[in-house]
Design a protein around this nucleic acid. Structure first.
Lengths: 337, 337
DNA sequence: CTGAAAGCGCTTACAG
DNA sequence: CTGAAAGCGCTTACAG
């Protein structure tokens, strides 16, 4: 079952490989190949089940029709969904996607970029880690189309698309204040990523606007590298502390879920004792008792827009600098009205 | 920023490309290239940051060091985790993974296989859909290493690895019976897949062993294609029906989650009115109130073993026929003791 | 209208 | 010990 090549087709049709290539790439007309011959070749190719070797084509043209997607962790809910949207979108344009997970590890991220480069992907969608600016800059310098998602670097001219973190948190906190909450706590992660920074700033700015003094005792920062149990203990300690709190806002998905477990452990009444909100929506939040109010990210829009920008850049060959902040949506449920 | 090739290295070192290739591929000794020269070349390559073009290499050698992974849906919890394990495992052996989702659509699955073939992947890990036997057979006939996961075809000689569905369900139902449950309902999906069949048979066989008559009113089959709302209504109707039930076993992940929503809607008391168990574990089950007993699949083991078999077959070039049924684990929580 | 030929960047028998 | 050359399967200027 030797794979058949363009040569086989050419031989059977009694023409040169060039002619076959032209016909199969839709350049028959351009090359003024007789309609009759073109039809014959097309038919023959289909009949024999000819499939061009993409490696050879890639080597020759420099285009692989493959995109690289680097996320934090493919098994995470948000990134899994993002990957799915991007896969679907890519398929529409006949692109394939190579995914990989960084685990927020910069060294790993660098290796992944290297790997994708070796495989000559046509473009990149990247969820950057701390300190990845240099690598991304090199990519761009090498004329590779790049779109960052979920986070970006303020000092780097690139395309990026993400939720409007600042506004989303600002509006939510403002809403809490309007509904009488005065002691609003937040739980966040210690990653120096712009998205987390923006979320925290949204919180601070909303307090300022409401003339509520900022208290650092109300802000709990958990280390990303902390083992699950340690993180749990820290969050539980924070929730159970004397510092009065009438609401807690978890600034990221996985911490919100951790918070839920603490709630159970501490037997805290939500929303009676404390209102509860998490960034990122999740099935868990919908099904929890009480159901949990969450700030949903427009995952589909993010994925679609990132792809659109990327494909546009690949097609045009011109570097772009698109910055998109998409609106988040507060899904109000029982845990915080 | 032209990518540099082996030619550039050869030129700078004043040797032929062949010599460079031998050195860089660790064949210096075998080819009796002087240690001195080898060192010089290695150093030069590193210094210039040379990275071989994988397309060219793939074209020449026929090996791409890329694996194809076809799952049902990458954004699904079980498959997302599986993908992650496989990605990590592949990385250890310096392979990359091309993922794709079938949505249980056979046509789509066929297209995906075709695409992966065009890209010359070295091996396949596939979650097959109904009616995919033919395609898989062709792959095997073409000497491509294939490992099926999660399901397989009884009449097809292939490698496969999956949880021992029959035993897992059999044991669980037997346990329920031992704890006094007599009217055990199951909710399953209408896919003609062997794993679902095995689960249902596990249920039937356990009843038989316990001398409890099988009642088809206790088995609810939901169409995979049913829209979410329709499925919800059907499950709710089943749960709320007059047919007495003292336990319900959801034979798949997504139906279990659906069941949870129905519970909430119907205000059923679990486990007082009815015990509740779902196949596949999930964060939701752990965090739900009451927490939900679940039959966890050994995702990591499945992924690791599938990779092991695949890589072994790639390395040896010999077709294997490994069949592995890994034990499930019942995670007992509040909803069913 | 169509074909012969070069070349993408590698690897690997073959020759010396 | 090392190099010249063929060839993997395509695409694309070039020539006629």
């Amino acid at each position: 079952m030797k794979k058949l090549s363009i040569k086989d087709i050419a031989q059977k049709a009694g023409v040169s490989t060039a002619t076959v290539s032209f016909v199969l790439n839709g350049k028959a007309e351009e090359m003024r190949i007789s309609e009759q011959l073109a039809k014959k070749i097309t038919k023959l190719a289909k009949q024999l089940g000819y499939q061009p070797n993409q490696l050879a084509r890639g080597l020759r043209t420099g285009k692989t029709h493959t995109l690289g997607l680097i996320v934090e962790n493919i098994s995470n809910h948000f990134f899994g969904n993002l990957a799915k949207v991007i896969e679907d979108e890519a398929k529409k344009y006949n692109y394939k996607v190579l995914y990989c997970s960084t685990e927020n590890n910069t060294l790993k991220a660098k290796e992944l970029i290297q790997m994708l480069q070796d495989r000559q992907v046509d473009g990149y969608i990247i969820t950057p880690t701390e300190g990845l600016e240099g690598e991304i800059e090199k990519l761009i310098a090498g004329k590779k189309p790049v779109v960052l998602v979920d986070r970006y670097f303020a000092n780097l001219a690139t395309n990026y698309v993400l939720v409007d973190n600042h506004k989303a948190v600002y509006d939510t906190v403002t809403r809490l204040v309007a509904r009488g909450h005065q002691h609003i706590g937040v739980v966040t992660v210690d990653l120096a990523l712009i998205n987390m920074e923006q979320r925290l700033n949204g919180y601070k700015d909303a307090l300022k606007a409401a003339k509520i003094p900022y208290k650092k005792e109300l802000v709990k920062i958990i280390s990303f590298d902390a083992p699950r149990e340690t993180a749990m203990d820290l969050v539980a300690e924070f929730l159970g502390s004397d510092q009065p709190k009438d609401a807690v806002f978890f600034l990221t998905n996985y911490l919100g879920i951790l918070g839920l477990e603490c709630l159970k452990k501490l037997k805290l009444k939500v929303p009676e004792q404390v209102a509860f909100i998490s960034f990122d929506d999740h099935d868990i939040f919908r099904l929890h008792t009480p159901s949990i109010t969450a700030l949903a990210q427009p995952v589909e829009d993010i994925g679609r827009m990132a792809m659109q920008i990327l494909l546009e850049e690949i097609k045009s060959g011109m570097k772009n600098d698109a910055h998109h902040f998409l609106p988040g949506e507060l899904v109000v449920r029982e845990s915080a009205l």
